[in-house]
Every structure is written in C-alpha cells, then in structure tokens.
Design a protein around this nucleic acid. Structure first.
Length: 479
RNA sequence: CCAGAUGUAGCGCAGUUGGUAGCGCGCCUCGUUCGGGACGAGGAGGCCGUGGGUUCGAGUCCCGUCAUCUGGACCA
C-alpha cells in the first residue's frame, strides 16, 4: 500500500527519461504552470522566488560596478528594428507583431521586443552628445518575446524574463573591458551562488549574436551531458552607433561613434539549476537562491511543547538571517520530508519530543540525506556551516560531472565516437573556416559551443579538414 | 516548421461491437494519528480540449483546430 502510493507520487527517474524527469520536477516542485498561450508559462511563487533571489544577487553585483536600471517600452516600431541589418535578419523570423491598437489599425506595425538593442540605441542617440555623457551603464529587468517553435519551461519559452545590460563607451578598449567584466560577473554568479561550473569562451562567427562583433558565453553542462548557454556578453564595436546615428564630441571637439556592449541572463538559469543539481527525489537548490533554506518539520506536534519549540527555533533562525519555513500543517512528517525534498530545500530540521528532552534537533542535508544531531544552542553556527558545506558539495558534484564528460578528439570519427553513448563536450582543433564548422555540425550533430579562453593544444591540424588549426573549440549538443 | 504520441474531476488513468461516465490519489468535514509520502467514516467535484460532421443516439467513428509531451530543424 505504502509502496503503491510512492509510485503514484514519484517522479520519473532521470535515467529512464531525462526530459520527463525535468518536466516532472518543474511541475511537482510548483515552479511553473502552463498558461493558455503556447510557450508562455506562469512562474508560480516558488519558481519566481528563485528568480527574485537571482535578481537580487546579480542586481547587487552590477550596481557595485556602476550600472543603473532603466525601463524601456516593450514595443519597437518596425523601422527602428530594421536599422541594423544583421540584427534584424537575426531576429525577424521570431518576432511577434502588433498591428492594431484597439480598433485602430497602426500605420506602422510594432514588434514586441525580442531584445532591446534598438530601443537603447535610439535612446542613446537622444542623450549622448559629448564625451562627458559617457559611459552610460544601463540595465533593465524585463521580459522579452521570441516566437519559438518548440518550447520547454525555463529552457525555451516564447516569453521569458531576463536582464539585459546595455552600455555605451567612448573607447573601444573600455567597451571590450566591459564585455569581459560582465562575462566574469556571470561566471561568478554561476560558480559562487548557483554552484554551477561553466566554461568561458568566445562564440565562433557563425554562432555569435546578430549584430555583434564578438559574442562571449558561459556554457554549463547538464546531468545528461548536454550544454546550456547560461549567459552571454556581446561587444558591438561601433556598428550600432553608426546604424543609429549615435555620435559624441570628444575632448578635441571631434565627432566620433561610441562603442557598445550588451549582456544577458534569463530565467533559463533556473532550468540550468534543475538539470545541474536535481536528482530523482526532485529539485536541489543552491542555498544562495533557495527560497527556503531550512524547513522545520515538527514531529508529533500535537504533543505539548513541540510546536512552541519549533516556533521558537524558527524565530531564532529568522533573526539570524536564514530563510526558514516552519511547516505546521497537519500533513504527516513523512509527507513533509518528501515534499521539501521535491522542492529542493537544502536543510531539513526535525524537532520532536525526543529531541526536546535532549535540547537538540536533527538536521538532514538534501543532497546526501545525512542526519546530524545538533544541540539547539549550536544551531546559529551549525546551520550556516551546513549550508556552506552543502553549496561546496553540490558545486563539486557538478564540477566532477563537467570534468568527466569533457573529452578530446582529433578527427570527425573520434568526435562521433565520443558521444556515441551519451552527449559530452568534445574539445577539438579547428582551422577557423565556417565550412568546417558546418561540416562538423552536420556529421557529428554537434554545433560549436565556444572557443574557451583556456586553450589547449590537442593537435596541429583541424579535426575536419586537416589544415593547420587556429583554435581549440568545444563542441556539444545544446538545449 | 516537420514527424510521432496524448488531451475524460485538481493530478494519474480506465472506459469493451457507438446506448448518456468510473477508479486511485488529491480536496472538504469529523475522529484517531504523527521519527520517511498515516488510518477510519462521511462528502463535494466532469458540456469527456475545442469546432464541425456521420447517427435515433458520439468520450467512443470521420474532418478541422488548439494545447501539451517526445524527437528533429531553429534559437537565450
């Protein structure tokens, strides 16, 4: 009987069906609900709270480096979108259009922003006149719309929430430094807060952002060996400035075009967290972004003193700055254990009559279910220590997964063989020709992910054509 | 966009050759419980995704459409 119920409520195991496992977690951890528009999901309170924590952390980071938040309109006139040729060609196929306002047919149709470069450029043209006006370090938190063909919660939705930074600088060097600084900020966010190791590098010309001179990326590896592009940072050169007529007078009163960047991370990161840390009991959340860091489960809570003690502990932890939830609902303890494991809460605190007698409680870690008996007087130090150890442990696990799923290959056959059983990152040398990149994609199924900053010498020649190699490239199957 | 699958109660499903809808979980009430998804007794809840068609009669057959899932192509 008990076993039957477990079967009913259990999620699909990731070994059986990774995609279904992912979908099960998304639903059962109450992160999203589907809406009545395809590809547009509702972020439920628990899912949105994770995003709020990511926002809070990253917003703090960019404020530290002098960025300011703004809010741009969500509509872009068609003529504005078309000013930069590469940009519009890249995005046109997936923009949504507004043709009517109420009963009025619009003279010029408006697209719902797929990204806001054009809006920022148009604005910069209004406000930038002099070198004294530079740089502008802007960012906005918003949602954008891209009419994707197939959609999956967090990973690919038609509307998604993100931040987009847009900066404009007097010199090329300054803009390039900004591009890399923000890429580093993304790496820090992923590594130190989301416990996700990433590979940092530059995109090939084929894979770079529409309108960018250089696109940089952080690539994370999921449990199943697939890649997730987790953040990108673009250097635009002065191409957008020229297209939009943004000019400034330098100190010698000479007119020149300023240099621009843009960079973004999105709610896709939540999908990355799920597929990096989750297990067959559900979600596993990094403490820094977990909406609940410690859940208190009272045992035999009808017995005198139990609930009072649980409330006392909750108040104490809250005062210590820990995000804590006391679940005093009338579900059984076992039900609560399973529920908060599904929701990925890092630490569970059990408190019952037997503990109270000993002035202690039980702490259980979500990642390994290790139980520790802790004196109640020690909680304020024991819990932060456990959260820190937890964060390090899940980072290490993710790092091990990354390290053990990167292989090298010197030719197409080796590349194919490397991913025969499961997807991996494959490092291979490349001559720099797009034709080879295309051929590799066609013959191995793997597009290039990036040219890592940390280059290695695997061989002298391109894995595809055998001509002298210029770069080591990481290839992989991506979400 | 292409291919396959699926839409029946909140969730998971059953529903026979077409005859007017059922099970488990969940939910509500009361009681007993509480250290790994507790138990009993009552109870509420469904235009069978949606629009047409065939038929005396459609959850069931036919056509369209929408959504979701899976896999491709495309992309944060």
């Amino acid at each position: 009987m008990a076993d039957d119920k477990k079967l009913v409520s259990a999620i699909t195991s990731m070994e059986d069906d990774f995609a279904q496992w992912y979908t099960d977690i998304v639903k059962k951890a109450e992160l999203v609900d589907y809406s009545s528009v395809k590809g547009c999901t509702i972020l439920r309170p628990y899912g949105y709270a994770i995003w709020e924590n990511i926002q809070r952390i990253f917003d703090g980071m960019i404020k530290e480096t002098g960025h300011e938040n703004v809010a741009m309109p969500m509509f872009i006139p068609e003529s504005l979108l078309q000013k930069e040729k590469d940009h519009v060609e890249g995005f046109a196929p997936e923009v949504a259009w507004v043709t009517h306002g109420g009963s009025e047919k619009l003279e010029e149709r408006l697209c719902v922003r797929p990204t806001s470069e054009t809006l920022f450029c148009d604005h910069f043209a209004h406000i930038v006149q002099s070198w004294r006006d530079l740089p502008k370090l802007y960012n906005q938190w918003c949602s954008v719309v891209r009419w994707e063909k197939t959609t999956r919660p967090f990973l690919r939705t038609r509307e998604f929430w993100w931040q987009e930074g847009h900066t404009i600088h007097a010199t090329k060097e300054e803009a390039e430094a900004e591009t890399l600084q923000q890429l580093d900020a993304y790496e820090t966010l992923c590594r130190d807060y989301l416990c996700m190791p990433v590979i940092k590098g530059r995109k090939t010309d084929k894979e770079k952002f529409a309108g960018a001179l250089d696109t940089y990326t952080i690539e994370a590896m999921m449990h199943d060996g697939k890649a997730l592009q987790s953040g990108t940072s673009h250097f635009f050169g002065d191409g957008f400035s020229r297209a939009f007529g943004v000019q400034f007078a330098d100190k010698n009163n000479k007119l020149s075009f300023p240099w621009q960047t843009s960079w973004g991370i999105s709610t896709r990161l939540i999908g990355g967290i799920i597929m990096t840390h989750g297990d067959n009991s559900g979600l596993v959340l990094p403490p820094a972004v977990a909406p609940i860091q410690v859940v208190i489960v009272p045992v035999a809570m009808h017995k005198p003193g139990v609930l009072d003690k649980a409330r006392e502990i909750a108040a104490q932890l809250k005062a210590a700055g820990i995000r804590v939830k006391l679940d005093d609902s009338d579900q059984s303890p076992g039900w609560k254990y399973a529920e908060y494991e599904m929701k990925g809460v890092p630490v569970r605190l059990e408190i019952g009559p037997r503990d109270i007698e000993k002035n202690s409680c039980v702490l259980v870690r979500r990642d390994n279910r290790e139980k520790t008996f802790v004196d109640l007087d020690q909680l304020n130090t024991a819990i932060p220590e456990m959260l820190e150890a937890f964060a390090q442990a899940i980072y290490k696990k993710a790092k091990d997964n990354l390290d053990s799923n990167i292989v090298t290959a010197t030719n197409l056959d080796e590349m194919k063989a490397a991913i025969a059983d499961k997807p991996k990152f494959v490092k291979a040398m490349w001559c720099g020709e797009e034709s080879c990149e295309l051929e590799i994609k066609e013959k191995t199924g793997m597009p290039s992910r990036c040219m890592p900053f940390e280059q290695e010498h695997i061989s002298d020649v391109c894995a595809c054509c055998g001509k002298p190699a210029k770069k080591m490239v990481v290839f992989g199957i991506a979400y």
